[in-house]
Structure formats: structure tokens, C-alpha cells
Write a protein that binds this DNA or RNA. Sequence first.
DNA 1: ACTTTTGTTAACCATTTGGTTAAACCAAAA
DNA 2: TTTTGGTTTAACCAAATGGTTAACAAAAGT
Lengths: 196, 196
Amino acid sequence: MSSATEAKILEAAKEVFMEQGLYGARMQDIANKAGINKALLHYYFRNKERLFDEVFGGALTKYFQNMEVLNDATLSVSARIVLFSECFIDFLAEYPQMSLFLLKEMSANEALFREKVKGIKSQGQQGIIQMLSDPDMNAKVDPIVFMMQLHSMCAYPFLAAPVFKVIIEKSGHQWEDPNHLKLKSAVKQFIIQQLS
Amino acid sequence: MSSATEAKILEAAKEVFMEQGLYGARMQDIANKAGINKALLHYYFRNKERLFDEVFGGALTKYFQNMEVLNDATLSVSARIVLFSECFIDFLAEYPQMSLFLLKEMSANEALFREKVKGIKSQGQQGIIQMLSDPDMNAKVDPIVFMMQLHSMCAYPFLAAPVFKVIIEKSGHQWEDPNHLKLKSAVKQFIIQQLS
DNA sequence: ACTTTTGTTAACCATTTGGTTAAACCAAAA
DNA sequence: TTTTGGTTTAACCAAATGGTTAACAAAAGT
């Protein structure tokens, strides 16, 4: 079923959409990057919006799949949260523009966003707050503040990458593009520090 | 000098650019919203990019001006950083949509963004990294990681407010809308914790 | 062997879009 | 009253862009 061409298109589309957004992306650019004719795009994916959905629809599914690790009852609470942060970072690294795109949509139409969230049975995110609110945990941190800080530390570096790139370069240091490992260990350290 | 028409154009342009971004915005839409002919846009502002600059040129400058408090040599390093975080949060609280918009535009067109940043002589931001890189500080944290985490904790809660709202409400807690104070104290605690 | 289906392309088409031109409008100066 | 200078518009234009068509090639059935 899934031809090599289709895969090439999806990969190219992902790159171009990420770089340029839905409006900025040009079908011709996607075709060029995939090394095929523009008409072939429309052969595989009827139009631009469908292609966009195909690319980012898969991303959304992945997004919520990553949250599932929070439900692994065989691990300790902090271990679960560390695992979640790592999955979250991995996802964001693959789709850096995704969260920015989602945030824009949410801000523009909060009601619609709430509607869509209802259709997804994800117990992951609120799980952090609930787990830390459990009296047995005897957590010293404010669960809500902690959850917000955790999300922030994972997500914002990808959103603000252009800003950070400039700031870091201006300070004479080198911007390490795939510094996910560094970020992961820093977040992990933060989690341990806050929850112990 | 500043005619009523020009003001109408700037107001309309601001709205349309905010909603649609640089690429998504259409000159015709801006003209319609301003209640004028499209050609008049080009009479007042030669082209799309100039109009865009006129509207948002100041925003970026403001964004980086917040960093100036870091240069107050009469305070300790950590005190300066705390002060910066408070200024930054105040700024973001005042223009939440603006920062989301700016980040989106920066990601969509990084080259253009870098071009604009060149025109801003800001010595603040790299200050954090440089101050913490100073051997005398003997800082235990990685300066770059710390700086990124600090920015993240300040900015992301405003960008992701709709998400957090849903998550928090779903967990049965109450979303406190103007929780800048809570955020400020949490960030301050983080700074002290990391730098001591 | 030949017929059908699937994959691929070049050439086109219709519309949109940023931008231009030349003429009209209009208030104030001469 | 006429001139003048800034302001505004309708009509255009060239380029770009999303999408279509018809022809063709390559497998896949039969």
C-alpha cells in the first residue's frame, strides 16, 4: 500500500509545513523536495489541506500516545513523570512547530479546542496534578505550579528556538541544535529536585 | 503628518497580521477592514513588508528591552535575575498574544527575524549566560540550560494558558486567571534554588 | 499477447495576490 | 477662478499558485 513515493511526499511535506506553516508552504516546494512532479502530490493527496491533515493528524495521534506512559502503574510517580518528560521532548523534537501551531489554534478558538479535547480519552496530563495531589505523596510542591513548570521547560525551548539561538550565539557560545539529551537531563534533575 | 487614514490602516493591519501572520494576511483584507482602496495601502506604505515592519517593528524592540535590568551593577547577580524575571512576566502578562505572534513569525521566517534583531543593540540577554559563566560565580548550573529554563518558566504559562486551563479544570482544581504573583514567586524560588 | 490498473509527467487553466498606472477628486493657495 | 498638491480610486498587470487534463509508461491481471 504505502509506496516509497508516498513516504517521500509525507517526509517532504512535513519538512516544508514545519518550516513555512500551512500558508507559507508551497506545493511546488514540497514536490521539489520530494523529487517528484507537482501533479503527483494531488494524485496521492487530493489537495493541500488533506496533505496537511495527513501530516499533522499523525502527529496529533503521536502526541497523545506519548502521554500514556503516565498510566504505567508499575513505575513510581517520579519515574513516570520523568518518562513522560522524555517522551514529550522526543515528540517536540520531531515536530517543533506542532505545539506552536496548536497553541495558535487554541488561542484563536478556545471553544472549538475544548470540543476536540473532549473526543480524546487521555488521562495523562491531569494525572500529574492528581498524582501529586494524593495525600500519600505528601508532595512539598504545588502540583499545579509544578505541572506548568514541567510543561514549560519541555516545550518552550522548541517554541523559542530562534530566540535562544540568537541569544546564545550573541553570548559567544555555540548553539547545539540537537541538545535534547542536555534538555532531558536538566528536566530530569528538576523533577527529582522538586519531588524529593 | 499622521492622517486618520494612516491610523486606520495601521489598526486594520495590526488586526489582520495578528490573525493571519505575515504570509496569511492579504493586502485586500487590510484595505477592506480599513475601509479604503487597496492602492491606498501602497500609497502610504510602499509594500507589504514595510507595512508589517511599521506595525510590529517596535514589538521586537520592546521584547528585548526588558533585558536591560540585568545591567544594574548595584545588585547581586541573583537579585538582577529575579528582577529580570519579574519584568519579563509583567511584559508577557500585558502582551500575551503578541509574544505568541512574535514566536510564530520568528519560526516561520527565521532569516527575516535575524535581520531585524541585528538592528537592536541589546546587551541584556547574553548577560545571564555571561554572568553565570564568570568563574567567580562558581555556578553549579549550566548557564545556557538555566537561561533557557528561566525564559521557559516565565513565558510558556502565558502562551499555553488555554491548555493549562483545560488540564487544571479537568483535574478538578480551579484556574486562577491572574496568577502572576504565584508565577513570580515560583520562578523566584527556582532562581534561588538553582543559584545557591 | 492484450487489457486494465496504477504511477508519473508536461502542459494548461483559473484564480489569487502583490503591486502599478493614470485619471479623478478636493481642499487650499495664488 | 484657476492652479496646485496631496489624496483616493478603478482598472490593470505580471507573477505565483493550487489544481486539472490528457497523454504516456510500467506493472499487474487475464
